[in-house]
Design a protein around this nucleic acid. Sequence first.
DNA 1: CCATGTGCGCAATAATATTTCGCATATGCG
DNA 2: CGCATATGCGAAATATTATTGCGCACATGG
Lengths: 166, 166
Amino acid sequence: MAGARLDPIDRKILAELQADGRMTNVELAKRVGISAPPCLRRVRALEEQGFIRGYHADIDPRELGFEVQVFAMVGLQSQAEADLSAFEARCRAWPLVRECHMLNGEVDFILKCVAPDLSTFQRFLTEELTAADNVGSVKTSLVIRGAKDEPGVPFDILEARLDQPA
Amino acid sequence: MAGARLDPIDRKILAELQADGRMTNVELAKRVGISAPPCLRRVRALEEQGFIRGYHADIDPRELGFEVQVFAMVGLQSQAEADLSAFEARCRAWPLVRECHMLNGEVDFILKCVAPDLSTFQRFLTEELTAADNVGSVKTSLVIRGAKDEPGVPFDILEARLDQPA
DNA sequence: CCATGTGCGCAATAATATTTCGCATATGCG
DNA sequence: CGCATATGCGAAATATTATTGCGCACATGG
């Protein structure tokens, strides 16, 4: 599957759609240097092959009243696979938890959370997260300010590497 | 600015476009229950008012050969504003760093990084990040597996809160 | 009760997406 | 070599969508 190597046009398409997911196919075709029909066929293929997982509007949480963003480091008491899975399932069910990644090292999971205000988050923290089954330690850090938030993949790196194959 | 309160239709539009940023305006209008022209006007207004910051294709890093994802906790030696800004600027220039957030607490910044392989990341870590001016401590954690990665804002929470104004 | 503003939706037009099909280049094999 | 097959492009035709230009309905405040 992953062997389906992409040609330079495919990579350009991915880079352009990552930068502007609502670009029209006509504009996209112009930018990658082919006509509209084959361009559309390539996009569909990239979607079906899983290179493109979807398209999302980037909504500003602040404007919607979500003033608080928090990273939570979670340690579990048991790291048995069943217990890990159970915790992941719980995270998927919590709307305030937007991301959940399992880590190596002392901390088992890192969670990215959003909330309308600090008290809403505190309530979630004490009544839900810390109180959840098998949760050992939770350390939280408030995001003071965001400095960078780029989506996905650095295509400039990708192109640079392909120029110099090992 | 934020006083420009959104009505239920606007919120539905945002929720739909967050879930599928490439939905046609006709389909969107159908889902939110108005006709296409006013729907498009609302979308344009939401874009101009900053509620929608952009649209992005969600590209799978694995498929592109970015096998490694790492969180790095960075402590600086000086937290003077000029030094904080300098570090943020450096992060913005590093392609492997996709996100950079300033935190409260002992750690100053958390970075989300991607790399094609571990050795590429190690090289970046030792030759760039740790070696950078004013960087004190760096602790990294490899992402073993992803359990949840939702974009943006939990609209279900938003609607629930608006039903019960304080 | 009327002036004004806001926002909807119909209808017309412009632009885009999508399908169909023939052509060119590449590849494998007799 | 020279022909079958495969792959991928692009022109042209058609179907959908986006966008513009009104006129109408409803709410607000004299």
